[in-house]
Simulated scan of single mutants.
Amino acid sequence: MKDADRDWFLVEETTDRRHWHPLIRALHDYWKDIAPPGALPGRQHMDPLDIPDLLPRVWLFDVVWPGPRFRFRLVGTRVVDRLGYDPTGEWLEDAFLDYSNYPSLVERYMATAENRRPTYRLGQQRLTRTRDFEFVENIFLPLAEDGRTVDMLLALSVLVDKSDGSQEE
């Protein structure tokens, strides 16, 4: 898949984040703040009490090597509500029947883990469809218990209304 064909990108230190949803910026800032010098943060660096307003929109995936493969570890209540069920404990490829129709989805998860860098996306929803919201804005952040080998992905999603650009509350 060519870069022009995908709707996500690897986040650089120089990436302009001014237009990101405030909740997306907040999680990205938190992730950067908890990172040890010169290393990736791990789950052990996170304290849910630091980000209570973000938790309903948070996804947490185990990254299993070799592969990598991705398993839902935690799915926030708001995400579960939008999906219509709780995929906690399921492998990504088993949780969604149309998984194979979206190679960019797989590439993004892999790119986040393999490059050890966040990815940002603003594009059409793929995993769920609602009448009110057609687009999603989200970020995927790598976590590494040893500071280097990605063993989890932390994500946050906000739904966006295509017609007027409004975001879910």
Score class of each variant (00 low, 15 high):
residue 64 V to W: 06
residue 16 D to N: 11
residue 32 K to D: 06
residue 157 S to G: 13
residue 80 V to N: 09
residue 101 N to W: 12
residue 142 P to D: 09
residue 111 A to C: 07
residue 40 L to V: 00
residue 162 K to W: 12
residue 56 P to D: 09
residue 76 G to T: 08
residue 146 D to G: 03
residue 131 R to Q: 13
residue 82 R to F: 10
residue 103 P to W: 03
residue 105 L to F: 13
residue 40 L to A: 02
residue 52 P to C: 10
residue 128 T to M: 07
residue 95 A to G: 04
residue 8 W to G: 08
residue 48 P to V: 07
residue 108 R to F: 05
residue 156 L to V: 05
residue 119 T to K: 14
residue 112 T to H: 08
residue 134 E to P: 05
residue 78 R to I: 05
residue 44 Q to I: 04
residue 145 E to G: 14
residue 110 M to H: 14
residue 97 L to D: 13
residue 33 D to L: 03
residue 35 A to F: 01
residue 5 D to P: 01
residue 28 H to S: 02
residue 45 H to Q: 15
residue 37 P to M: 01
residue 6 R to L: 08
residue 10 L to K: 00
residue 139 I to T: 03
residue 166 S to T: 14
residue 86 D to S: 09
residue 113 A to W: 11
residue 20 W to F: 05
residue 112 T to E: 08
residue 128 T to C: 09
residue 32 K to V: 09
residue 145 E to L: 12
residue 43 R to Q: 13
residue 18 R to P: 00
residue 87 P to K: 07
residue 8 W to N: 08
residue 64 V to N: 08
residue 1 M to C: 03
residue 135 F to N: 08
residue 23 L to T: 03
residue 59 W to P: 01
residue 108 R to M: 15
residue 18 R to M: 02
residue 127 L to C: 07
residue 10 L to P: 01
residue 78 R to T: 09
residue 138 N to D: 15
residue 41 P to L: 03
residue 26 A to K: 05
residue 118 P to M: 10
residue 126 R to M: 14
residue 35 A to P: 02
residue 83 L to Y: 12
residue 29 D to V: 01
residue 103 P to Q: 03
residue 75 V to N: 06
residue 8 W to H: 11
residue 2 K to G: 14
residue 127 L to W: 12
residue 168 E to Q: 06
residue 101 N to D: 15
residue 100 S to L: 11
residue 72 F to M: 08
residue 144 A to E: 13
residue 151 D to S: 06
residue 71 R to M: 06
residue 128 T to Q: 06
residue 92 L to H: 01
residue 118 P to L: 11
residue 127 L to K: 09
residue 54 L to E: 03
residue 69 R to G: 12
residue 80 V to H: 07
residue 71 R to Y: 10
residue 151 D to I: 02
residue 168 E to Y: 01
residue 84 G to L: 12
residue 4 A to L: 08
residue 52 P to F: 09
residue 77 T to M: 10
residue 98 D to A: 14
residue 45 H to Y: 04
residue 145 E to W: 06
residue 16 D to K: 04
residue 3 D to R: 15
residue 26 A to S: 11
residue 53 D to P: 04
residue 7 D to T: 14
residue 134 E to G: 15
residue 112 T to I: 08
residue 122 L to V: 06
residue 70 F to K: 13
residue 76 G to V: 10
residue 142 P to Q: 09
residue 120 Y to I: 04
residue 82 R to K: 09
residue 84 G to V: 06
residue 154 L to D: 01
residue 132 D to V: 06
residue 156 L to D: 02
residue 80 V to C: 14
residue 158 V to F: 00
residue 152 M to D: 02
residue 151 D to E: 03
residue 42 G to V: 00
residue 120 Y to L: 11
residue 117 R to W: 03
residue 23 L to A: 07
residue 103 P to Y: 03
residue 112 T to G: 05
residue 127 L to R: 13
residue 119 T to Q: 11
residue 166 S to H: 08
residue 86 D to L: 10
residue 167 Q to A: 13
residue 43 R to K: 15
residue 99 Y to M: 12
residue 132 D to H: 10
residue 113 A to D: 10
residue 88 T to N: 13
residue 35 A to K: 00
residue 58 V to H: 00
residue 77 T to W: 11
residue 105 L to R: 15
residue 152 M to T: 00
residue 109 Y to A: 08
residue 32 K to S: 10
residue 103 P to M: 04
residue 14 T to Q: 14
residue 95 A to N: 04
residue 2 K to F: 11
